[in-house]
Design a binder for these strands. Structure first.
Length: 127
DNA sequence: GCGGTGACTGACA
DNA sequence: CTGTCAGCCACCG
């Protein structure tokens, strides 16, 4: 019965609702003291190319224990505007984990090179 | 349906 | 190194 447009229960969700759990799991998978990017998180969540969706998810807030501070832009810079409250908060959390920051940018030594060879290839893991 | 917006990205100067 | 730009995707009024 796939011909029904919305189905009887009309389970119409926005993508962000549909992938919320996957995104959350992908972020949770980032080890303490390491970082990843919006694009990498999206890819792990099974939605490659949806980096902005990950950003939108985090922007919702209210995720509590989610290690959102380990998510950076592709150039390893903090996504918040420098000087903003969010920027400072993220810096504080990263420093608390021993992540080395230089001018708002995370040093490569903290780059998430996780267990996946694919991730290593894309991130170019090396101290 | 259209245009604006954003915790993005890659390429280029 | 920095700044600009076009492409990008989903949400919103």
């Amino acid at each position: 019965m796939l011909s029904g447009p919305l189905g009887e229960g009309s389970v119409v969700m926005r993508l962000i609702d549909q992938y919320r759990e996957a995104i959350q799991a992908a972020i949770t998978a980032i080890p303490p003291g390491r970082v990843s990017s919006y694009g990498a998180v999206a890819r792990r969540a099974g939605i490659p190319g949806r980096a902005r969706l990950v950003a939108r998810f985090l922007a919702e807030g209210g995720h509590g224990e989610l290690p959102w501070h380990r998510v950076l832009r592709s150039d390893r810079r903090i996504a918040f505007p420098e000087g903003s409250a969010g920027f400072h908060e993220q810096v504080r959390r990263l420093l608390a984990e021993g992540v080395v920051l230089r001018n708002g940018r995370v040093s490569r030594q903290a780059t998430d090179g996780n267990a996946d060879d694919l991730d290593q290839a894309l991130w170019g893991r090396h101290r």
